[in-house]
């Protein structure tokens, strides 16, 4: 639940989602759900020359199961806070 809450805080920010098929998509985070499915707006594929497959897509839903990385804006990460929260969750409360 921790990362679900965390991603909800990032709604409205610009992120890059790297998929397990090596595609990287940049866009504004619109929403996230419990499976960490992600909806992005104003999307563009990072290497459009190589991957023109989504040229006419501006909004997309990405299934959580195919996400490899989410690149976050530096100002969107409070490392200390996240550290504390993950430790607390690991301890079971």
């Amino acid at each position: 639940m921790l990362f679900f809450s965390y991603f909800k805080e990032l709604v409205g920010r610009e992120v890059t989602v790297e998929l397990k098929n090596d595609l990287a998509i940049r866009g504004t985070l619109h929403s996230v759900d419990q499976y960490l499915n992600i909806k992005l707006e104003n999307t563009r594929v990072v290497d459009q020359e190589k991957y023109p497959h989504m040229l006419s897509v501006r909004n997309c839903f990405i299934r959580g199961s195919v996400v490899r990385y989410v690149q976050l804006p530096p100002e969107g990460v409070d490392v200390e806070l996240l550290h504390d929260a993950t430790r607390r969750e690991a301890r079971g409360g």
Partner: peptide
């Protein structure tokens, strides 16, 4: 399923898919 994208019809009609190689 990996991605479900909303296809922008206007945008799509501007793309010359028949000559797109990738």
């Amino acid at each position: 399923i990996s991605i479900v994208g909303e296809l922008d019809a206007d945008l799509d009609s501007t793309v010359d898919w028949s000559n797109m190689k990738a």
